[in-house]
Design a binder for these strands. Structure first.
Length: 201
DNA sequence: CTTCCTTTGAAGCAG
DNA sequence: CTGCTTCAAAGGAAG
């Protein structure tokens, strides 16, 4: 149930859809900044195949350019590559019991420590290659773009008003991102309370 | 629906 | 420079 087909490698497509490369998104964002969300450019760029039809779908995370294509993720570090490669093996080895990801990650952490330096080096090499490719592909990108400055003391995701600044203004404009008492909201749909809350711009 | 949990390492940020 | 924080992956649990 829900298990992957044995022969199907479980890699996730890390590449941006050609229809909306980050570069295109940046172009789009700049044009929006210059022309506003009601610009005819909006329609023409959409007609050109760029997925900027602003979200009607329930899940903004999966349908919206901001949360998907526009979000350039950090390159994976050595341990992340190790996890990616060994998680499926470990799941099979453990009979993919009712093990949760968090528990599997603990085990993977142990195995990472037990791994000889020579074998670890393989993953450090992968990570370095990934970083270099990432840098070549997204020159000028910084991890800062995904970084929410400390809002909660220890390790919690940020939900502050300040974090709105990292998003394109038109999402705020349209109400897809709002700020209320409970923090940043991005349900992808306007509620009356969201309409009442003020956009940042 | 979003966030948490849990790991390591890279990198951002504050002092 | 030092030390703390966030985010990369994963996916079930919790809210």
């Amino acid at each position: 149930m829900g298990m992957r087909a044995p022969m199907s490698p479980s890699f996730v497509p890390c590449v941006m859809p050609t229809a909306l490369s980050p570069h295109n998104v940046e172009m789009y964002r700049q044009m929006m900044m210059m022309n506003g969300p009601c610009s005819p450019l909006y329609g023409s760029m959409a007609a050109a195949g760029m997925k900027m039809d602003v979200p009607l779908a329930a899940s903004m995370r999966t349908s919206n350019p901001l949360n998907q294509e526009d979000h350039i993720k950090k390159p994976l570090n050595a341990f992340m590559w190790f996890m990616k490669e060994n998680r499926p093996k470990l799941m099979e080895e453990l009979g993919y019991k009712e093990k949760q990801s968090a528990e599997l990650n603990k085990e993977l952490g142990k195995r990472w420590h037990d791994l000889p330096k020579e074998e670890q080096q393989k993953y450090f090499d992968m990570a370095r290659a990934d970083r270099e490719q990432h840098k070549a592909k997204y020159p000028g990108w910084s991890a800062r773009e995904n970084y929410a400055v400390h809002k909660r003391k220890k390790k919690r995701r940020d939900k502050s008003e300040a974090s709105l600044a990292q998003y394109p203004f038109y999402l705020v404009f349209y109400g897809y991102l709002t700020v209320n008492d409970s923090g940043l909201s991005n349900t992808g749909r306007l509620t009356s309370s969201q309409q009442a809350s003020k956009p940042l711009c």
